[in-house]
């Protein structure tokens, strides 16, 4: 097959990058507004995957064909609800306390979600097969040597549509403008009459919904789910957000695709060293651009 930069790798890179992007947007939005690294964010993605799993199983049990859009909405709603509740129950009471307390709490929320899920009999600690073919029957297409499945098409197109919608919300709506204003200067935003807690709730809901959607998309493309499935993608999405410049939405998207591509190409060069190569890139970028690719240089404006 010659070059490692072939079509198949590109397809796989976009596909993994899309998943990271959906997760990493939530990290970056929440960080932007309350400077919290929400380590539980990867678990919102896991909750989205299980919500989709139960929705599909429920329909299958009733011999109905589940509607993909409805399942997507269910996983997004589930992600949004856990995100909202985590904020209200765990993070909000610590809002004006030392930042380390909130960080440790985030790790606590993460573990709570993972262990509680494994303790619930219907979920359990072990892998479950995601019933992706009950949701969408698989088709594959050959393009030259590359194979593209309709799962990958769904995955990439849903991700792109969601990112377009998110960008529209952040850039062009009243609440999006308030999110940006609050991220730049919380006190000034409050002096405009903005109820900052409402904006923070909204931010968690949006981030959680995108992570929930990523959970479903992962379920259909890598159909094995378990309660700990959020840890690694969560970490990688966080890394992607830092790579792109934490706080920046376009940065999170860019960082995610770079990470997705470097992983795929790295693996093609050497399947053992593969991921290591991706992280070497990360370290290099951060040495030369500590604020990330699209991040703001820190420094007060006079």
């Amino acid at each position: 097959m010659g070059s490692i930069f072939n079509l198949q790798q590109i397809i796989n890179g976009i596909q993994i990058g899309s998943i990271y992007a959906l997760i990493s947007i939530g990290y970056t939005l929440v960080y932007g507004i309350i400077q919290l690294i929400n380590f539980a964010h990867g678990d919102f993605y896991m909750v989205g995957a299980y919500a989709a799993y139960f929705a599909v199983m429920f329909s299958a049990a009733r011999k109905e064909h589940p509607n993909v859009l409805i399942v997507l909405l269910i996983s997004m709603t589930a992600g949004a609800i856990v995100a909202f509740l985590s904020n209200r129950i765990a993070y909000r009471p610590l809002r004006y306390k030392p930042r380390l307390s909130a960080l440790i709490t985030a790790i606590g929320v993460s573990m709570f979600l993972e262990y509680t899920s494994s303790a619930i009999p219907a979920i359990g600690p072990s892998y479950r097969a995601f019933p992706q073919s009950a949701l969408i029957p698989e088709h594959t297409y050959k393009i030259g040597h590359a194979i593209l499945s309709n799962y990958q098409i769904v995955n990439m197109s849903v991700a792109v549509v969601l990112m377009v919608v998110l960008t529209y919300i952040v850039q062009y709506t009243r609440i999006g403008m308030a999110m940006r204003a609050s991220a730049q200067d919380k006190d000034a935003a409050r002096l405009m009459g903005i109820d900052i807690e409402y904006i923070i709730d909204f931010t968690f809901i949006i981030g959680g919904a995108l992570a929930g959607a990523a959970g479903l998309l992962t379920g259909i493309t890598y159909p094995r789910i378990n309660p700990y499935m959020g840890i690694i993608p969560g970490l990688k999405a966080f890394i992607a957000a830092v790579l792109g410049g934490i706080g920046s939405v376009p940065g999170a998207m860019l960082g995610s695709y770079i990470l997705g591509f470097s992983e795929v190409f790295g693996m093609a060069i050497n399947s053992i060293l593969g991921e290591g190569i991706a992280y070497a890139i990360l370290i290099l970028v951060l040495i030369f651009l500590p604020q990330g690719l699209l991040g703001k240089k820190t420094g007060e404006k006079v």
């Binding site: 403008m177 940006r180 204003a181 730049q184 200067d185 006190d187 000034a188 002096l191 405009m192 903005i194």
Partner: peptide
């Protein structure tokens, strides 16, 4: 304490929240 990354117009719109 203006919002530096918002446009002038957006800053005014925030004022009208």
């Amino acid at each position: 304490r203006i919002f530096p990354d918002l446009t002038v117009r957006e800053n005014l719109e925030m004022g009208a929240w």
